[in-house]
């Protein structure tokens, strides 16, 4: 990808101003404070509910509900036993392999489909149908086709992430500005040159939007696929804990997925912001 012109520093520099710790970190302070407050309230309610009994039964049963300290305990326990690290590596592997394949295939096919009108018209109905279908509905079929090992999980992650990336890339290539094409043509640009200097850089922001959506869908794919097949991974941990009433481990699994989601989408957003610096609406 051509990035050399995108990577130069912008002309505008932040004007010097007096620093104000609160103003500079307002989001962090308010958001972080709210999270701490909610966690504390949750913990208090949980401790309180366990201690007070109604008809000799605790008000809150550990079977149905849990608190932050118990989740933390589950984290320590599973980490020490080596179960959690191995689950994380398993799930992470499924995600990385499936997502990377989806990224490569989505961008390449998206560019081809977006660039050639005939190809697009031919494939449009199928793409629309596939995009509208919840990919999860295909899980039983995928298990039949790919067995119950790692492969079906990777295939499900792939299918989940592939379509958002594909569809956004198509839109990016399709919506290239006609004036830019005309200017390139007037300078005798070859098809290849038009492609590398106009079509590709013009669709980068769209591709990255697809990446952001693909990350979110891919994570769903990881959890769902592991719930259905195999005996490893965070998705399996959540499903198995559910069957064994290990409520705090369910919460742990959910928290891990939430954390991964926040981390990966914010990374994708940063990437997107970086490559969209030339856009007027920043």
């Amino acid at each position: 990808m051509k990035t050399e012109t995108l990577a130069t520093t912008p002309v505008k520099e932040a004007p010097a101003r007096r620093t104000n710790f609160y103003k500079d970190h307002e989001g962090m302070i308010l958001g972080g404070g709210a999270v701490v407050l909610v966690l504390a309230a949750w913990e208090a309610a949980w401790q309180h509910g366990r201690a007070y009994s109604l008809d000799a039964e605790p008000m809150i049963s550990a079977l149905f509900f849990t608190g932050p300290s118990a989740v933390l305990g589950a984290l320590r326990e599973t980490w020490a036993s080596g179960q959690l690290p191995s689950d994380l590596i398993h799930s992470g592997g499924n995600f990385v392999v499936g997502f990377t394949a989806a990224l490569a295939a989505g961008v390449v096919l998206g560019i081809v489909i977006g660039w050639f009108r005939t190809v697009r018209l031919l494939l449009d109905p199928f793409l629309n149908a596939f995009y509208a279908t919840p990919r999860i509905a295909l899980v039983p079929l995928i298990i039949i086709m790919f067995g119950i090992g790692r492969l079906p999980a990777i295939v499900i992650v792939f299918l989940s992430a592939f379509f958002p990336i594909l569809i956004n890339t198509i839109v990016g290539v399709k919506t290239i500005d006609d004036d830019l094409l005309k200017a390139a043509r007037s300078f005798c640009a070859s098809h290849m040159q038009i492609f590398t200097t106009v079509a590709l850089p013009g669709s980068v922001p769209f591709i990255l939007t697809g990446v952001r959506q693909g990350v979110a869908h891919g994570l769903i794919g990881v959890v769902v696929s592991e719930m259905f097949v195999g005996g490893e991974g965070i998705g399996f941990m959540i499903a198995y804990s559910g069957q064994t009433f290990a409520t705090e481990r369910i919460f742990l699994g959910v928290a891990i997925m939430a954390g991964a989601g926040i981390l990966l989408t914010s990374a994708a957003e940063r990437l997107q912001a970086h490559f969209s610096r030339w856009r007027p609406e920043r």
Partner: peptide, 11 residues
């Protein structure tokens, strides 16, 4: 051109 038709991602 009437419209500058500059590549917006290039300096």
């Amino acid at each position: 051109f009437q419209h500058a038709s500059l590549l917006p991602w290039r300096t």
